[in-house]
Amino acid sequence: MANAPDRFELFLLGEGQQKVTTREDTRTPNTLYFVIEKEDHTIGNLIRMHLVKHPEVVFAAYRVPHPLVPNVELRVQTTGKITPKEAVQQVIQDLLHQLSTLGQNITREFELKRMAMEDGR
Rank of each mutant, 00 (worst) to 15 (best):
A2H: 08
N3E: 09
A4I: 07
F8G: 10
E9S: 15
L10S: 11
L10N: 13
L12E: 11
L12V: 10
L12F: 10
L12K: 09
L13I: 13
G14W: 03
E15P: 07
G16V: 12
Q17M: 13
Q18I: 07
K19F: 00
T21M: 10
E24I: 06
R27K: 11
R27T: 15
R27P: 06
P29Y: 08
P29D: 06
N30R: 08
T31K: 11
F34L: 14
V35E: 14
V35S: 15
E39L: 00
I43F: 09
I43Q: 00
I43P: 03
G44Y: 15
N45G: 03
L46A: 13
I47Y: 05
I47P: 00
H50M: 08
H50G: 06
V52F: 01
V52T: 12
V52I: 15
K53Y: 01
H54C: 07
E56W: 06
V57Q: 04
V57L: 04
V58M: 06
V58D: 04
A60H: 04
V64C: 15
P65F: 11
P65A: 13
P65Y: 10
H66I: 10
H66Q: 12
P67M: 09
L68E: 15
L68K: 13
V69Q: 14
N71K: 13
V72P: 01
R75K: 10
V76A: 04
V76E: 07
Q77C: 00
Q77P: 03
T78Y: 05
T79L: 07
G80E: 12
K81V: 00
I82W: 10
I82M: 06
T83V: 11
T83I: 14
P84F: 02
P84L: 02
P84H: 00
E86H: 06
E86Y: 05
A87M: 05
V88I: 03
Q89N: 08
Q90I: 02
V91M: 09
I92L: 10
L95G: 07
L96V: 13
H97L: 13
L99F: 14
T101P: 05
Q104I: 10
Q104E: 15
N105L: 11
N105W: 05
I106Y: 13
T107L: 12
T107A: 12
R108L: 02
E111P: 00
L112Q: 09
L112M: 11
L112A: 12
K113E: 12
M115D: 07
M115P: 00
A116H: 08
A116E: 11
M117V: 01
